[in-house]
Design a protein around this nucleic acid. Structure first.
Length: 111
DNA sequence: GTGTTGACCACAG
DNA sequence: GCTGTGGCCAACA
């Protein structure tokens, strides 16, 4: 089991599943908070997913920058939204006016 | 155990 | 197009 760096306690299973699921996203693709929530079979938990990523104990290990809002906007990022955008562009993800073409880049988790 | 907070979402105006 | 409102869920004080 992993240990959270902030409170020095074991992370919850919810967080573990979030990180595990996100780590499956291939480079050059992105997903939304809602898609992640759907992958966890909690379609309503998009907000909780964001909360988990915000505290993200595994900063570079988990590609949390590949998670954006369901409307295509980039959303927030603990290290700064601009950083997030820069990282995505390095992965050949096209971003127009702070938004991403979901039809082209959205990654859907397999059942 | 209760209330607040937040990298969210959908809908109304 | 943008703003406001209500709802949802899990973490935290």
């Amino acid at each position: 089991m992993w240990i959270s760096e902030t409170n020095n306690q074991p992370i919850t299973k919810f967080q573990a599943s979030v990180y595990k699921l996100i780590s499956r996203i291939p480079s050059g693709k992105i997903s939304t908070y809602q898609q992640v929530a759907r992958g966890l079979k909690n379609p309503r938990a998009a907000r909780a997913v964001g909360n988990a990523l915000n505290r993200n104990p595994f900063a570079p290990e988990v590609p949390c920058h590949r998670i954006i809002k369901s409307n295509g906007a980039v959303g927030g990022f603990a290290d700064g939204t601009k950083k997030k955008i820069a990282m995505l562009r390095k992965e050949r993800v096209e971003i127009k006016k702070g938004k991403i073409n979901l039809d082209k880049y959205l990654y859907v988790f397999p059942k």
